[in-house]
Design a protein around this nucleic acid. Structure first.
Lengths: 203, 203
DNA sequence: TGTACATCAGTGAACGCGCGTTCACTGATGTAC
DNA sequence: TGTACATCAGTGAACGCGCGTTCACTGATGTAC
C-alpha cells in the first residue's frame, strides 16, 4: 500500500530524532526550533508533517508504546510451561528493563497532556489492549475468565508493577535504588502468584 | 515559637488558594498573575514569600503530602486486630479516597519537576517516611524485619496501589472506570495478603 | 505626646525571553501541448 | 524533445503571546529623641 516516499522517510526520521531528544533531555527539550535543527529540516516542515508540536509528541509516544508492546510481546511468547510466578516475573522484568532503557522517553508517555478535548489516537488503545492481552494470555491457565476476572487481574498486575517502577524512576516516593526496584517487583510478583494460586484453590 | 504574624497568615492563604487552583484546573493553571489575583496580593509578594513560582508549588505539594500522611495515618491507628487483608484494604482505600478527592492536586505532586540540581525540601522525605512507617506498622505482625524485608514490602505495596490509582486517574493505560479501580485495588490487596501469609508459612 | 526618620513588606507596571505558530516565498517535480 | 505552466512540499524570518521575574516606588509600622 504505502510506498515509503520521501515524505514518509522524513516523517520517520523526525520521529526518531525527536525520540532520541526526549530520551536524552526529557519532554521539555522537544521544542520546534530544536527538533527542526537536529532533524535537519525547517520548522514549517514539522507543521506540514504533524500539524503541531503536540502531534509530534503523540507520534513519538505512539512509537514508544509500540516498542514496549513488542518488548513485552517477545517476553510473552517464550513463557511456555513456566510456573505462574516465573511467567509474571519475566513479563514484569521485561517492563522494568524497557522503562530503564528508555527512561525519559517512557516518562514522556505519562507526562504529556493533550489540550482539553483532544484525545489520543486509536493506536494508543490498541497497543494498550495488546499489552494487556499478553498478560491475560500468561495468566490464562491460572485465572478463570468469569466476570472479566482475568482482565481485572491483568490490569491490576500491570498497574502494580507500573507503580513500583514509576516511583523508583523519580524517587520522590517509594523507591530508593535500582536493586530495591528489582526486589520490590520480584516481591509483588511472588506474592501475587502465590495469592492467585491459593485464591483459586480456596475458591 | 512562631507567633503567626500577618506574613505567616498571608503565606498560608496563598498556599491554600494555590492548592484550590491546582485542584480545580491543574498545575499548569498556577501562573504568577493568576494566583496573585485570586489570592488578592501582588505578583511581587509571591516572590517575597516563596522566592519563585517553583517555591510556591513545592509549598503546595508539601502540604498535599502532609494531608495524605494525615489521612493514611488516621486509617492506620484504627487497624486494631484486623486481618492482614483488611488492614491493607483500609490503608489502600484511604489512599484511593485521597487521590480521588484531590485528584489534580495529587497528580501535581508527581507532575511537577524542580529545575536541574535543585531538590525537594526535607519535609518531602519525612512525610514519605511517615507514610511508609504506617504501612510497616500495619504489616509488622505478619512480615519479619530481617534484611529490611518489611521496608521492601511496605514500599512494594505502596507502589503497587499507587500504580493502579495513577493509571486509573489518567486512563491512558490500564484503568477503565472507578469501579474497576476499586476492584483492582481490592484484588491486589487480597493477593498480597494471601501471598504474605502463605509465604511466611512456607518459609 | 509629638515629630522626624528608618525600615521593610507589599506593590504592579514594565521587562525580556522563549516559545509555538504562520505565511509569503522557493525550487524541484509533474503535466499539457 | 522542448517549452510553458501548475503544483505543492519544504523553507525560515517574523509575529505575537504569555510567561516568570524585576525593581523603583508606596505607605504602614516601629523607633529615637
Amino acid at each position: 500500500m504505502s510506498e515509503t516516499g520521501y515524505r514518509e522517510t522524513l516523517r520517520g526520521e523526525v520521529i526518531a530524532k525527536a525520540g532520541t531528544l526526549i530520551e536524552m533531555e526529557g519532554l521539555a527539550a522537544l521544542q520546534a526550533r530544536r527538533i527542526a535543527r537536529e532533524a535537519g529540516c525547517a520548522v514549517g516542515t514539522l507543521y506540514n508533517l504533524f500539524g503541531d508540536i503536540d502531534g509530534l509528541v503523540v507520534a513519538v509516544n505512539a512509537e514508544t508504546l509500540a516498542l514496549l508492546g513488542a518488548s513485552i510481546g517477545s517476553a510473552g511468547v517464550v513463557l511456555g510451561t513456566l510456573s505462574l510466578e516465573e511467567r509474571l516475573a519475566r513479563l514484569a522484568m521485561a517492563y522494568v528493563d524497557f522503562a530503564l532503557a528508555h527512561q525519559r522517553r517512557w516518562e514522556a508517555v505519562f507526562e504529556h497532556r493533550l489540550p482539553e478535548g483532544r484525545d489520543a489516537p486509536a493506536s494508543y488503545l490498541e497497543d494498550q489492549d495488546r499489552l494487556l492481552g499478553v498478560i491475560e494470555a500468561a495468566i490464562a491457565d491460572f485465572v478463570p475468565d468469569a466476570n472479566g476476572q482475568r482482565g481485572i487481574t491483568a490490569r491490576a498486575l500491570f498497574g502494580a508493577v507500573h507503580g513500583i517502577v514509576a516511583l523508583a524512576l523519580d524517587n520522590r516516593l517509594g523507591g530508593r535504588s535500582l536493586t530495591e526496584l528489582e526486589q520490590q517487583v520480584r516481591l509483588i510478583v511472588r506474592l501475587a502468584a502465590i495469592g492467585i494460586t491459593r485464591d483459586n484453590a480456596v475458591a
